[in-house]
Design a binder for these strands. Structure first.
Lengths: 201, 201
DNA sequence: CGTCTATTTGAATGTACTCAAAAGCGGTGG
DNA sequence: CCACCGCTTTTGAGTACATTCAAATAGACG
């Protein structure tokens, strides 16, 4: 993975949303550093204070939380051009609530909190960009919340397949179950049922 | 309710987070307008495009969504000094996903999308303020999400009581049930059970 | 090839749900 | 002031969906 190429990918992402001068682009590029993550390696680990966030250049990450009954709950899968991190922990010394783990060999452009603050000073336009990104994220999470409380596991599963075509090839089934908020056994049974239904038609 | 007093309340809220010049404070104050909402009146109605959001000056609102099975799900209760609105609908012509309804006679300082955009131009510091507010909101919703998928209804109930003392006096029980993601009947039974347990001790 | 992990299947259980009805509470009008 | 009405809360009986615990099968990786 080429560092310049990775940073160009990030700049393309930003340029699609706001316009930056050459100088500003340079400052943005300098603030991030490229890092490789091997499969199963952690970018963030729950319980540890953490003051960095990252842009996914390539690969896949799962962002999840482990509850007090030791159950894992996937919040989302981080693919190319997504951001991963724990905003509460990024902005203070609060221990991270989330885990971010590579599901395959992957590359991140990571940034430290101090660097990001400096970047906001140097390129104030970014305040707006990240305000809007955060708002979008909030909207997506709201939808996910209402789907979780208002729809059956089967509806949630079908919605996921539709919204994220090909996800079954990318992510093992027990982690899809974790995303849906059910156990792997339940997903297995549900898939069998759905097959029956479709054969019946 | 005095308009000047209401706007001073908003400015106090902002001044606790960032510092504004007299001139900037004036611009902020001018962008908002005070409006009364009688009990049960709607500030936002699901399905209608809506391009305004608001700061709660006094009273209580419930922010909820009605799913395709006609079930109401409360996302949060908006008390004094909270923001209410639907960010996706505020920022585009997408119909609102949320309802915002007054639970008692209440006052809001509302702002139109165009006014807010103008305000961001005039007072760029606000980009940062609202970026941070949105991030905090996201963190709170994340916690709520994991509590919903990871904890029992009883745990969620006890957590709510602890985090929001006195809420049982402010909000009818069937709406607390809706916030918890269970039916009123289930909450009633749960409370009975909790009473038994406590008597047992 | 063997080991470890993921998936499937089975049987019993539990938590919250549905439907139904009674009891409680609060506000309104006579 | 009290009787009535509508809405909220409680209680009951039966049900559904996903869970738990357990074991077998399948698949991936070294």
């Amino acid at each position: 993975m080429d560092e310049l190429q990775a940073k160009q990918q990030l700049l393309n992402y930003i340029n699609q949303r706001i316009s930056l001068t050459e100088d500003e682009q340079q400052k943005v590029a300098n603030a991030f550093q490229l890092k490789q993550f091997k499969k199963k390696e952690y970018f963030l680990e729950q319980g540890r204070p953490n003051r960095q966030e990252a842009f996914v250049v390539s690969g896949t990450f799962r962002v999840f939380h482990i509850d007090n009954k030791s159950m894992e709950h996937v919040l989302y899968f981080g693919f190319k051009d997504w951001w991963v991190g724990d905003s509460a922990s990024f902005n203070s010394d609060i221990p991270s609530f989330l885990n971010v783990q590579a599901m395959e060999d992957s590359w991140l452009l990571q940034i430290q909190w101090e660097e990001k603050e400096k970047l906001y000073e140097d390129v104030p336009k970014l305040e707006r960009l990240f305000r809007i990104i955060t708002m979008r994220t909030l909207t997506v999470l709201q939808k996910r919340f209402f789907l979780t409380v208002g729809a059956s596991a089967e509806e949630r599963y079908l919605e996921l397949l539709e919204r994220h075509q090909g996800i079954e090839q990318l992510v093992p089934q027990h982690q899809i179950a974790s995303y849906l908020g059910i156990l792997p056994e339940s997903l297995s049974r549900m898939k069998k049922q759905l097959l029956m239904k479709n054969k019946g038609i």
